[in-house]
Each structure stands twice: as C-alpha cells, then as structure tokens.
C-alpha cells in the first residue's frame, strides 16, 4: 500500500475513534487487517427513519491510490433502500464515485452514508425495484425497510403480518431470504410472490 494511503488512513482512523459521533454510538470503525487496507464500518440507523434502531455493517476497502480515489464501500448488512442494492450491498452515492474529493475522510463518508439513509434519492437508484416502490407506494416502502431493519440489522420493530407471510413460504420450502425478497418486491402480495418463486 502506498505510503500516503496508509499514513492517511491511520490518522483518519484515529479521528473517527475520537469523534463525537462515536461517543454517541452513531458510527464506528474497526480494523480488519494490520496494514489498514480493509476496515469494517458500522453506522446506526438514523432516528425517525425506517432504519432507526438498526446497526448497519459496511465493508470499506482502501485502494492503493487513496486518497486520490475514493474508498470502496458496500453494505454487508442487507438493507432495503433505493440507493443500495438489496442483493450486493453496492451503494450509489456521488461522493463514492465522481464527487469524491481528497479532503474527505472515513468520518465524512460514514456520516454521508448515514445521511443517505435519512434522505434517499429515488431518481438516482441503485436498486430499481426498491426505487419503484419508494416512488409508487412510500408507505409500503417504509414498512418493508423497517421489516428488513428488524430482520437483518437488529431493529426493534417486528411486523407480525410480514413475518407470518415469510413463515408460510418457508413452510413451502422456500429459503427465508428469497421469500423476503420476493414478498418485498411484490408489495407483500402472497399470490404474486408465490407465482414468481415457483415459476
């Protein structure tokens, strides 16, 4: 790893650890290996959003060309969000792409991601299915996102109706996650989800 990259990440790592946000448990970062090329980030779901109460784990890979190129970040925790792929966790955020600036840091990236959870950009989607639901049926989107937060990120709000539907599909031999994806994609319409799963 280039000299600059390692030196910078060390400083940034310290900055995050000492930051107010860590004190408030809003963000966290951990080392994955000793040479600072890979880190594990964690952000808390912002209050008054469907993600409230959940903890989302991020994979952060620091390229050798850092800080001239942005870090590669993706969600390890499955999440229902228009700008984050529900399959791969890939993120669509301008500062992680062409709007990256060398003065940005791990802390600003984590805070930007947290802000992205509170303010989705459905017009610049990463996950077309989620974005469509967000635009056409925002209430359904919020319920689904809250359910995903409960299922994968340790969120407190369980949805009995959704859980029952998933249980039914599991009884029919469907994998839990596949069932959840299918139901989420069809606004929790059992019939259409089943049709898709068994076609």
């Amino acid at each position: 790893m280039a000299n600059i990259a390692a030196q910078r990440i060390k400083r940034e790592f310290k900055e995050v650890i000492k930051s107010e946000e860590v004190a408030k448990c809003a963000i966290r970062v951990e080392l994955v290996n000793d040479n600072y090329t890979e880190l594990k980030g964690e952000i808390a779901g912002p209050p008054d959003t469907p993600y409230e109460g959940g903890n989302f784990i991020l994979e952060i890979k620091v390229p050798e060309t850092y800080p001239f190129n942005p870090p590669k970040v993706r969600f390890m925790t499955k999440i229902w969000h228009p700008n984050i792929s529900s399959v791969t966790g890939a993120i669509c955020l301008d500062i992680l792409k062409d709007q990256w600036a060398a003065a940005m840091t791990l802390r600003t990236v984590l805070l930007s991601l947290q802000a992205l959870l509170s303010a989705a950009e459905p017009d610049d989607p990463q996950d077309a299915v989620v974005a469509k639901q967000f635009k056409e049926n925002v209430e359904m989107f919020q319920l689904t996102a809250r359910h995903w937060t409960n299922a994968y990120a340790g969120g407190p709000n369980a949805n009995k109706d959704f859980d029952d539907k998933i249980k039914k599909l599991i009884e029919m031999g469907v994998d839990e996650h596949e069932a959840r994806v299918a139901l989420s994609s069809y606004n929790w319409d059992m019939e259409r989800a089943t049709e898709q799963l068994f076609s």
Partner: peptide, 17 residues
Amino acid sequence: VVLFSTGECCICFSSRL
C-alpha cells in the same frame, strides 16, 4: 491534533513528503 493540523498538507495529512 486528530486529523491534521494547520501547515499540514490537506491531501496526505502530513507536513513532510
């Protein structure tokens, strides 16, 4: 000094490169 102090380069976060 956490991130970088004045007089340090705002890209590499060090004074001597």
